[in-house]
Design a protein around this nucleic acid. Structure first.
Lengths: 203, 203
DNA sequence: AAGAGCATGTAACCTGTTACATGATTAT
DNA sequence: ATAATCATGTAACAGGTTACATGCTCTT
């Protein structure tokens, strides 16, 4: 799902200007979808050009006019179609896990720092979600509560996993020689998939 | 962290050709980092050009020669630097959660299907991880075990969250009128941030 | 006085994805 | 026979990020 569609979705709930949408992205969707002005404004322009939204300009004193976008019937239909199309994705991209994979090439101070800041980042997610949900009325939409709860649950599980398993990771101590790996790795891909021509895969 | 760096990291453990790296991405990193041939081959070419890896061609019968890449000292240093640079990211991008946010615009059959296939996708992740880790020796690197365990923990937590909370989501039944939202949403962003010029934000 | 917030956007860039192109060998 | 595996890559495209450009008002 691209940002255009997501903007359209938000506009199916309330009319808004680009600035408003950015704030919604940063409150509601922060833990699973990112978007900056550089994507939102062009997206709104495209939506308007395609007739999926209408734009009404509200002049203001001393600021650029608010361009308030509201969804059209055509836009609503378009969004319904998007909701009914194929298998939605759910993708994690984590440099943190990459680094943890290479933990034994990290020195121990750095490793502990990375683990601590990841835990604290998850704490930030939890705090952020709590912060936004606290102001919600009790009849707030189920979908919103579900995705907020999902974020909390993930942050909690991740934190717990890290705290319970960080002890298995040991970076090397800083005073040892650098630049040389001291541990020979087992090849973790499937055993013996290498043609005979390839030599010296290690144990 | 870009794919180039990650390839370099894998090459810091074992020499490999592009095809091998792809397989490693798909076994070890599948749950948190994706990469296709279209990124890997150009990445390897760039690394070689930058002198961070050496390339040795191993001719084969009836196939293109294997281009086996091995890391250089310069490459190893470069990778260490990457591991020691700033705050690694950890980003989720989920169309699934987007759709759940808009659950009440989904019809109920579709909603249940989405939830079921997401649960089953997480089951697939768990199976995949179990599958690869089962073949690992008991002294396999701690980093590899940590990231595999992380993936399992997340899949488990996500599945549990979905099963325990799916009941709060109700799509509309299919025989009702389509294209019109029947529920007026409360604006979930901060209360009263709208300038007076903006009208008719709802309760 | 300084900084945050409101409000718009563009343009160049970076990065990765998808589809294409080729073709023998091995397992089912 | 058919499909999967091995093995290389390119080229066009899509999509999002970052930096830039502007400027008033309200809060601290």
């Amino acid at each position: 799902m691209d940002i255009k569609t997501l903007c359209l979705g938000l506009l199916s709930l309330n009319e808004a200007c680009g600035y408003d949408l950015k704030k919604k992205f940063e409150s509601l969707f922060k833990h699973f979808f990112a978007a900056g002005y550089g994507s939102i404004y062009p997206a709104l322009a495209d939506l308007a050009e395609a007739g999926l939204v209408d734009c009404r300009e509200v002049p203001q004193n001393g600021r650029p006019a608010r361009k308030v976008y509201s969804i059209t019937e055509s836009g609503r239909k378009h969004f319904q179609d998007a909701l009914n199309s194929a298998n939605p994705t759910h993708k994690l991209r984590s440099d943190f896990l990459v680094m943890m994979y290479f933990a034994d090439q990290l020195d121990n101070d750095r490793l502990q720092l990375l683990l601590n800041s990841r835990v604290s980042a998850f704490g930030g997610v939890t705090a952020h979600i709590k912060n936004i949900t606290d102001s919600w009325p009790s009849d707030s939409p189920a979908g919103a509560r579900f995705v907020a709860g999902f974020g909390e649950a993930m942050a909690k599980a991740a934190t717990q996993y890290i705290e319970e398993n960080r002890h298995i990771l040991k970076g090397h101590s800083q005073d040892q020689a650098k630049g040389q790996p001291r541990i020979r790795h087992t090849d973790l891909s499937q055993a013996n998939h290498q043609p005979a021509a390839t030599i010296e895969e290690r144990v």
